[in-house]
Amino acid sequence: MPFALSPERDRELAEILSRYPNRQAACIPMLHLCQEQNGWVSDEVVEFVARTLELPSAHVLGVVTFYTLFNQQPVGRHQVWVCRTLSCALRGSDELLRHCEKKLGVHAGETTKGGEVTLRTAECLASCGTAPMMQIDKNYHENLSIAEVDRLLDRLLAGG
């Protein structure tokens, strides 16, 4: 089925387009908008963005594959990113990641069987002074202890 934006997001797109001197510049914000609705960037989304912005599909696909935050496959209902870079590693992000893997029963890069959570590592998220940290969906969780991680993951697994 061809993809289309909800009326509300369609209005948002019109506003986004008004910010730039050409349509192409809306490519990344528009992909975010579509992914928010669809969960991932499917071929149908690529076609839709290409058509709307009057760009070749190959251009849009090139953009999608360049940036790590565009999901090229379906993902879990929640996204968990554990920062693995140096400042976090110096404060225990390795253990934190191992703990998440054990608790969720998946490796980094995978989604839990029930589709609740996709676990991933991230490179430095500009939160080094409050390491270790992880991002869950749009929120940062900083100065984490294993106990706090447990609480956060329990909430996600319970459908919160």
């Binding site: 050409n22 490519c27 953009v63 940036y67 490179e123």
Partner: peptide, 19 residues
């Protein structure tokens, strides 16, 4: 959309232009 290189100014400009 998640790319360290986009902090480099000319990469950033390409990204701003939707590339």
């Amino acid at each position: 959309a998640g790319a360290y290189i986009c902090g480099e100014e000319t990469s950033l400009l390409n990204s701003l232009e939707g590339k």
